[in-house]
């Protein structure tokens, strides 16, 4: 085992800090070439094809997750998100017990496998305007959901000092809180 004396250790810390301040430690293109399975993906909330819309909306609300993957014969057949609730269901006079998810889901959605890169996921999200992408196994069975938030969290991990280690409120020179105090 190699023991490092504390002066040496502090020197190392100082060098790291200087590199970070100079912007030399940074998120590079290679960071985006990693596979999406290296992210901590959320397990998919799956719903069987033919499930009533009422049950689907209740499941979304109970799980606090804005995306359902619809499964037909063990395979991904659709995706249904909170955007679909807003655009297709909210404000309508539908009786949600009388309609099924298949009528409102996006059929045969774009999907990825765990070995695809973060870069390809980003491209897919940007191009399609998606916030959630289904991740499936080789047989097409849904495994997880990759959300735009997962990618943001990945990026944040590279810059803990800049994003997580912040004062509670920005220091605003020459301004004051409009709410008084």
């Amino acid at each position: 085992m190699v023991y490092v004396d504390s002066d040496q250790f502090n020197d190392e810390l100082q060098i790291m800090k200087e590199l970070m301040d100079d912007g030399q430690i940074a998120l590079s293109d290679s960071s985006l070439k990693k596979s999406i399975e290296s992210l901590h993906l959320k397990k998919a909330v799956c719903i069987d094809s033919g499930t009533s819309m009422q049950q689907c909306v209740e499941t979304m609300a109970a799980r606090q997750f804005g995306c359902l993957l619809v499964v037909d014969n063990g395979k991904l057949s659709g995706i249904f998100t909170e955007r679909d609730v807003l655009m297709k269901i909210a404000g309508s006079d539908l009786n949600l017990n009388d309609v099924v998810i298949d009528d409102f889901m996006s059929k045969d959605p774009a999907h990825l496998t765990g070995s695809d890169t973060i870069e390809s996921a980003l491209r897919m999200m940007g191009k399609g305007g998606y916030r959630h992408i289904a991740v499936v196994d080789e047989a097409g069975a849904p495994l997880a959901v990759l959300s735009i938030r997962d990618i943001v969290s990945y990026i944040v991990e590279f810059f803990p000092q800049d994003v997580l280690n912040l004062p509670p409120h920005p220091i605003r020179v020459g301004t004051k809180n409009p709410y008084g105090g």
Binding site: V152, F159, D162, T175
Partner: peptide, 30 residues
């Protein structure tokens, strides 16, 4: 909420820590 002149890091912080997807920006009048 944040102000237009605040750093992007603060918006990212609110989104990552608070789980928000949108952050409103306000002027000095609120």
């Amino acid at each position: 909420y944040l102000f237009h002149d605040d750093h992007i890091a603060f918006a990212l912080n609110r989104m990552h820590v608070g789980g928000f997807r949108h952050i409103p920006l306000i002027n000095l009048k609120g």
